[in-house]
Simulated scan of single mutants.
Amino acid sequence: MTSPTEPGRLLLLDSASMYFRAFFGMPEYAAPDGTNVNAVRGMLDYISRLVDQYRPTDLVCCWDDDWRPQWRVDLIPTYKAHRVVEEVESAPDVEEVPDPLERQVPILREVLEAFGLAVIGAPGYEADDVIGTLATGAGQPVDIVTGDRDLFQLVDDAADVRVLYIGKGVGRHERVTEEWVRDKYAIEAGQYADFATMRGDASDGLPGVKGVGEKTAATLLQRFGDLDGIVAAALDPASEMGPGPRGKIKDAADYLAVAPTVVAVARDIDLDRSALALPTTPADPERVEALALQWGLESPTTRLIGVLAGG
């Protein structure tokens, strides 16, 4: 229990990262009408587990209102291009999602809202950007739950912001702090966005700097501090940068001019922070009960109700 002068913990959930993981990691579970609801059940169980373990006072299910923002595509056209449904030619881009999962997302959203859990997205932005904005200047300890390494750029010990990384599963998540990033990548957390820009990420359609992997990217950041320093050194014939990295950085000049904007999560979206408190009882108990009966969610909803009540 926090005191009136002690800020409680804010838990920020990368919702899509979590329900994709639930869909692919949980056994199929048929609702009374035959609909597979494994992602819904898994997501509710994940929330119960995390709330029970960390006892946050505030929680937000951060949503992809725009999973592939046009402003990022304008800068790097390959950004997430491989995930676009090919048959759909009209804007906006439609993400390729397995049909059994696509049917579950509206169900999940309805259940979350019936519980009164904050669900926040922003037009033109991804969930990562919502997370970045809510984590920045939060004035309270923040835990970010995600399987996306890009969010390591938000880790900040001084501001008490860490990532609960679910790459190995929610039950085996890792607490990512500045020391963790340092030990894993030999860089500072504040350098992670520049590190990711150079390394690239095929899953996001980011080519990176050709010939520069994690080890070289880390070495360059250790020597020159940040991407601006690295580019300046590459352009300076008198710098101590070797000919190999120098040529690779210079060859990637066009990419490096735009990629940092794509990789950096937004931290300044205009968001309503007034209703982030974790409820102790469902906002609409009758609706929760009806949805549980309709979709075969009695067990996970009962567990979440108990956890929210402090049980």
Rank of each mutant, 00 (worst) to 15 (best):
E6H: 13
E6T: 14
G8N: 08
R9I: 14
L10H: 11
S17L: 04
M18E: 15
M18S: 12
E28G: 12
A39S: 12
R49W: 12
P56K: 01
W63G: 00
D64L: 08
V73N: 09
I76C: 09
V84K: 14
E86M: 09
E95S: 14
E95W: 12
V97E: 05
I107M: 10
Y125F: 12
V145E: 01
I166D: 01
G167T: 03
E174R: 13
E174I: 11
V176G: 08
R182S: 10
A193V: 09
A196W: 11
G200F: 01
L206M: 06
G208C: 02
K215W: 10
K215P: 03
T219P: 08
T219V: 11
T219F: 13
F224N: 07
L227P: 01
D228F: 02
A233G: 04
G244T: 15
K248W: 05
K250M: 15
K250Q: 15
D251P: 12
Y255G: 01
A257L: 11
A259V: 08
V262N: 04
A264C: 10
D268E: 12
D268W: 07
I269W: 09
I269C: 10
D272Q: 00
A275V: 12
L276H: 10
T280H: 13
P285K: 01
R287T: 13
L293S: 12
Q294K: 15
G296M: 00
L297I: 08
S299E: 12
I305W: 02
I305M: 09
